[in-house]
Design a protein around this nucleic acid. Structure first.
Lengths: 124, 124
DNA sequence: ATCCCACATTAGACAATATCCAAATCAAGC
DNA sequence: GCTTGATTTGGATATTGTCTAATGTGGGAT
């Protein structure tokens, strides 16, 4: 555990928002001025491998990182500004996919992404 | 309707796979050698605006374009090679999101993405 | 305490994807 | 056959992410 990794972990743990890699880097630099972009990417990649953090790619803008990896949940995304909220719908979508629709795939995971406008963007 | 747009539409309509913009460009060039990348992007963007084609961003690789915009469906994505199949699960995920989980958002759409390995990647 | 070594970090180059823009070109109507 | 306005083009640019070679660092062995 180096200073750089601690800083990245602190940034993610700070508030449970869904930051882009660049936002993580910006906040890390505020705490440790000479941390490099590559280290942030490396560390985020490791955290993802360890299962401590989830990668969320809802659009072609930057990936976002979700520190809430331990409780299953889905995402509500603002189509305009890209902000994300965690949500916990009822039901189990994996069970809704019959074998006849699996085409021989080994299905291991489901992501449900609700799209809409957040209150801020809706009123603008 | 210009020759370029017709070619892009033909490529998408050809077989119902989920091509990246670059693959669309490659196939369009095969039919009309001097079509430029910018035109392909422009035309794809217009088709998306018209609702004729869906954009699918399942990862940080290229966006893919889904010509099957008129029948609601979801996607089964190979985590390794990125290939996509359309699937039609039962159930209605929108109904599974209670008002208390909407945080004031105007929720208009749901995307369900199943992830796994396609038969080819699973056997490799 | 010092020396090594494996590993982490850095800065910047590079790659992939997408978008923008000015200039050239085309199509349609007169 | 012109003029006009939209379309296309090619290249420049932006954004995001990855790679690499060089440097730095901590911790164990001696």
């Amino acid at each position: 555990m180096t200073a750089q990794r601690r800083v990245v972990a602190e940034v993610l743990d700070g508030d449970h928002v869904h930051l882009t890699a660049d936002e993580v880097h910006a906040r890390a630099v505020a705490k440790l001025p000479e941390i490099s972009r590559a280290t942030v990417y490396n560390t985020l990649g490791e955290l993802v491998s360890l299962g401590e953090v989830l990668e969320v790619a809802t659009d072609k803008r930057a990936k976002r990182y979700d520190p809430n990896a331990h409780r299953p949940h889905h995402h509500l995304v603002c189509a305009q500004c890209g902000s994300i909220r965690d949500v916990h719908p009822s039901g189990n979508p994996l069970a809704d996919l019959p074998d006849s629709e699996r085409f021989g795939f080994t299905v291991s995971d489901v992501e449900v992404t609700y799209r809409g406008l957040c209150p801020t963007c809706a009123s603008a």
